[in-house]
């Protein structure tokens, strides 16, 4: 474990806690894409099912359990508990256009042609683009609640922090994971526009608003 990865994981953890806090305190899931959240459940379930047969560490195990359970809980909050506050008419990105290509990519690019390894590759590819319905929604509405932007910033920072972690591991352990690295670069790049507005507006105390 190095600090980049630790802070990356903590940032990921923080993003989910911020999202839960937003939903609970405003009693609303306005501005949150259900499709993106559903894709995250798919990502976590596909990647972390190994927690039942591969023991790594207590840290690794607890994080996996937390990510799977919290993401399912968020779906419950959106679909059942605060259902009236979710507006599917602005959450229009076609998620199947993301899932299909990721299945194909996972079948081609994987470290071993076995079910768990293909599933792992799939989860890495899907994670890299899972934020698109959310960003698309943001683009459509042109503005976001500040708390939602903090959620997105923490989520974007997580994969960005994994990049120095991979560089560090390349030099200290000699390992390189090209699938995760390429997908991680794509994932981080998707946040560039968002981060620009976040740093120039939200962190200066202004509202998150996209130029018309």
């Amino acid at each position: 474990m190095n600090l980049f990865r630790l802070f990356g994981d903590l940032s990921h953890l923080a993003s989910i806690l911020i999202l839960l806090h937003k939903i609970q305190t405003t009693r609303s899931c306005r501005g949150i894409s259900f499709k993106t959240q559903a894709l995250y459940v798919t990502v976590f379930v596909a990647r972390y099912l190994d927690l039942f047969y591969d023991w790594v560490s207590l840290y690794n195990f607890s994080m996996k359990v937390f990510f799977i359970s919290s993401s399912i809980y968020i779906l419950y909050l959106m679909k059942v508990r605060f259902r009236p506050t979710h507006d599917p008419s602005i959450d229009t990105f076609r998620a199947e256009y993301l899932v299909g290509p990721c299945v194909v990519l996972a079948l081609i690019f994987n470290y071993k042609f076995t079910f768990p390894e293909v599933l792992w590759s799939f989860s890495i590819f899907l994670e890299s683009v899972a934020i698109l319905p959310q960003l698309f929604m943001l683009q459509r509405t042109g503005e976001a609640e500040t708390i939602t932007t903090h959620y997105l910033a923490a989520l974007g920072a997580y994969r960005a922090l994994y990049i120095p972690n991979w560089i560090y591991r390349y030099f200290s352990e000699g390992v390189v994971d090209p699938i995760a690295v390429i997908a991680g670069l794509v994932q981080t790049a998707l946040y560039v526009d968002f981060f620009y507005v976040y740093f120039t507006k939200v962190l200066q105390g202004q509202k998150f608003e996209l130029p018309a």
């Binding site: 990865r5 560490s57 470290y111 792992w120 390349y170 390992v175 994971d177 090209p178 995760a180």
Partner: peptide
């Protein structure tokens, strides 16, 4: 270097 995925990453 070796290529592959470190199993300890999340």
């Amino acid at each position: 270097h070796t290529e592959g995925r470190p199993k300890d990453e999340l």
